[in-house]
Design a protein around this nucleic acid. Sequence first.
RNA 1: GCCCGGGUGGUGUAGUGGCCCAUCAUACAACCCUGUCACGGUUGUGACGCGGGUUCAAAUCCCGCCUCGGGCGCCA
Length: 459
Amino acid sequence: MILVSVFLPRSRTMALKFRLRESVGMQDRTYTADAEPGDDVTVAGWVHEIRDLGGIAFLILRDATGKIQIKFEKDEMDEDLVETGLGVARESVVEVSGAVEEEPRAPTGVEVTPESLEVVSAADPELPLDPSGKVDAEMSTRLDNRTLDLRKDEVQAVFEIRAEILRATREQFREFDATEITTPKIVATGTEGGTELFPITYFGEEAFMNQSPQLFKQLIAGSNVERVFEIGPIFRAEEHNTPRHLNEATSIDFEGAFCDQNDAMDVVEGVVKAAYEAIAENCQDELEALGLEDEFGLSDDAFPRISYEDAIERINATGELDEQLVWGDDLSTAAEEALGDDVGGHYFITDWPSEIKPFYIKDHDDDPQLSTGFDLMHPRMELVSGGQREHRHENLIEGFEQQGLDPDQFEYYTKMFKYGMPPHAGFGLGGERLVMTILGLENIREAVLFPRDRQRLSP
RNA sequence: GCCCGGGUGGUGUAGUGGCCCAUCAUACAACCCUGUCACGGUUGUGACGCGGGUUCAAAUCCCGCCUCGGGCGCCA
């Protein structure tokens, strides 16, 4: 990514966003975005850069709201002050007090003439990566030094937007009358078998990190709560090596009683669109930092709902695949790409063959070969999988057996289907994949502060 | 799980057997410069992932290990 400008003018909304924090921060500190000409201020932050032109020199101070220029005139100012100010290493934390003056030649139109400067925390002059962005760093170097990496505007913007996506999806779920729940991450059994779970020891007993809140959210949807959502971590022990998989991911889950797969699709479509809208409305500065301000948005059109049968026909018709797909085939990455290019936007694939969907997905009443399962696809990758759930106890037990699972191990789950389980439907949406597709990130690790992948366990 | 490609100063790179006590940028150090905004200029500092092998000669070829990234499978 290329930094658009060293000085990103922060808008009024940005300044307002941070003003709220002042009540809990340094009482007499002014954010750089709030420094107005005529004020006597104390600003505190990181030394972004020092430009020494000889008789005059500038220190660029950066904080969460932006940057401000501190001016040093060597002949006219206290020698110690100049020496301290210009001797400090980049990325050191300093606190500067002085008068803010209007100055058209300054990058933001204002600059501070310092009266005092304190080095709060000196930085090592040799940095493991360059937060000013003049020199790129590799993903691995960046992740090993996330604190420094986040000092770059375009990196910080990703996580501000991620936070906005989470806020907007939460709010949208509330619009759908769903209650936020949290379910256990340490579990006795997996959702779909034990092969892809991280085993742990729980007081001497075998346990696992949960790979999905699926069974728990169903149990709560079957209570009077009816509609639930959860935004939380999921853990998968698969040893994949791709730019779109994580071993710890954030799942955005929904489950609703008296809902069918079409209702679930309505909800997920609403949630995804709410995320796009919230970003367009509240994250202009961040979009600019990422260079996305011109092209950002999502069409108002409904996401097309394409049946599995039509999907394979359409894929075959593109001629992109070496071998024609036949009914019952799962969709390969190449097939998904061919269809994604053909559709050109988000779309659902519905009515999958029952045999390639998990046991808890309900089949169509009039055709047991067809499931109510659906996927929401972004042209670049799968975002969501969902469907109507099997709520009939007998059918559920049968499903376990057909999938080669022992229903006795899941008794905590299946027995609740004996005490009044309404029809219900839901979905799981990949949180990082949502962030990644919305922002066009090349690697899913860009969307997580401290990613867990096959190689990385720390930091 | 199968397959492919990398690892060179702090950072990012050039270099496919001798022309390399290793290129360039940035950083760092010193000096010059009174309006920079990726400031500019001069000089300097600093590196071939680890171990073994082939060769008169290895950053370069071979083997093993460590490590990073990607493709597929599978998935969110």
